[in-house]
Design a protein around this nucleic acid. Structure first.
Length: 425
RNA sequence: GGAGAGGUGGCCGAGUGGUCGAAGGCGCAGCACUGGAAAUGCUGUAUAGGGGCAACUCUAUCGAGGGUUCGAAUCCCUCCCUCUCCGCCA
């Protein structure tokens, strides 16, 4: 959420920065509401102060021996009553304005950082790094062809169990998924990340706090009876891990790594990526998350991205890093690097991690602050996949495919998977 | 699902209508004492919003919302949550 003070004092900045995202907003009405709200607050609190004085006066008079029904006391009591009525009128107006203001502010995305390049679509993203030697020989299979041939998952039967865009991993496929989760968690905890396994049903406040609600309700699965939603990413529960907390500055940064299943409705993506592991309603992901000091967040963003890249490098998967443009960064993000892995079967790079700095955007929505000396202020949050498991498996299958039809796995995975090869069984 | 108990500051815990943002303790910070420390003593120590250059000051907040009252942590209503026991269950 954007800062109300910024709205009051410098709405031009908001208009300008949202403009970089391709949005055209007119904030004059909202700014007026914000100012009215503050005026009302002042009137109301002055009235309340007077009411408090009267209350004390009445108490003192009665204690001093005056009869509660005596004319002097009665006069004050009636004055108090009138003030109470005025206050309740003002309070209601104020509340209406507050709700309106908040509702609107909640729908605005984060302001991009200066570093985020201007642009409209993903075509304007900037490649900033490339690693590894992509395989480009012809006649390579796509991951779903390999997986079906080797019996790593069930597609038709998954529809029977659930519906389309769900997958059932089988045998070595299930084992590889499990190996990847363990491998990534171990890699990150070895660097000091604290492992978290949170609830994956989360309440509305959690989803609002990280920015998925109110705007993107149609993207999440909901358990209507219970005010609970299936989490679309571990970013949601981890953000709320410290919701409404004040953290001592010397404890920062807090770095977490979390494996969770993730659930997305993928509304509006009919017909895209219908085969295989690329786009599913349910998928596994290992997520990296930092709570950090505002002055350290830029540095943290680089480090978090390097930590995600370390997984790709350990798995010997060629990738590139993109700096997303203002038109392509997510709702809560101020700056984002996407990591794209090379899929030789598909012949393209594919997003496998998205590493974002959210500034104080989520912290304000979730009231997560830190205390340094006497001052309490909002901290910064960052998140990034480290990595999406299903897409990692797809990449391993396509990059490791051999002429004999088997798949060669990177050495780093052998201790977890128990073999360096997946062959037909 | 059945029965009961309870939600007060970073923590514990007192407080059943007025001077209570809230005793006391713990913790924490500063100062004193000390060669240094412990112990001890003194002082300070919530959050949000508004006003002021500042000292400071006003308002709100004792789970949430509503009500009674001139005045509510304290009385009334509704809701939420937590804990204990029983049942069921991975």
């Amino acid at each position: 959420m954007l800062d109300q003070r910024l709205l009051r004092d410098n709405p031009e900045l908001i208009t300008e920065q949202l403009g970089r995202r391709g949005m055209s907003v007119d904030l004059t009405g909202l700014q007026l509401i914000a100012k009215q709200e503050r005026d009302l607050e002042e009137q109301r609190s002055n009235l309340q102060a007077e009411g408090n004085r009267i209350g004390k006066e009445v108490g003192a008079m009665i204690k001093g021996g005056a009869a509660p029904g005596s004319p002097e006391v009665m006069e004050l009591r009636e004055k108090g009553n009138r003030i109470k009525q005025q206050v309740s009128v003002l309070e209601e107006e104020e509340k209406n304005l507050q709700v309106k203001l908040r509702e609107q502010l909640m729908t605005f995305p984060n302001l991009p950082l200066a570093e985020t390049p201007d642009g409209k679509t993903e075509a304007d993203n900037v490649e900033v790094k490339r690693w590894g030697e992509p395989r480009t020989e012809g006649e390579l299979e796509e991951h779903w062809q390999i997986a079906e041939r080797l019996g790593l998952f069930e597609t038709e039967r998954s529809v029977r169990i659930a519906q389309s865009r769900f997958i059932t991993l089988m045998g070595q496929g299930a084992r590889l998924e499990r190996a990847l989760i363990s491998f990534m968690l171990d890699l990150h905890t070895g660097k000091g990340y604290r492992e978290v396994m949170p609830p994956i049903l989360v309440n509305t406040a959690s989803l609002t706090g990280s920015g998925q609600l109110p705007k993107f309700a149609e993207e999440s699965f909901r358990c209507a009876e219970d005010d609970l939603w299936l989490t679309p990413t571990a970013e949601v529960p981890i953000t709320s891990l410290h919701r409404d907390e004040v953290i001592p500055a010397d404890q920062l940064p807090l770095r977490y790594v979390s494996y969770t299943p993730c659930f997305r409705r993928e509304a509006g993506s009919y017909g895209r990526d219908t085969r295989g592991l690329i786009r599913l309603h349910q998928f596994n992901k290992v997520e990296l998350y930092w709570f950090c000091h505002p002055e350290k967040s830029a540095e943290a963003h680089e480090q978090l991205t390097l930590d995600a890249e370390a997984v790709l490098e350990a798995l010997e998967l060629p990738y590139r890093r993109l700096e997303l443009c203002t038109g392509d960064i997510g709702f809560s993000a101020a700056r984002t690097y996407d990591l794209e892995v090379w899929l030789p079967g598909a012949g393209s790079f594919r997003e496998i991690s998205s590493c974002s700095i959210c500034g104080d955007f989520q912290a304000r929505r979730s009231a997560i602050r830190f205390k340094e000396g006497k001052s309490t202020q909002l901290l910064h949050t960052l998140n990034g996949s480290g990595l999406a498991i299903g897409r990692t498996m797809a990449a391993l299958l396509e990059n490791g495919q051999q002429v004999d039809g088997s798949v060669k796995l990177p050495a780093a995975l052998v201790p977890f998977f128990g073999s360096d090869t997946i062959a037909a069984q």
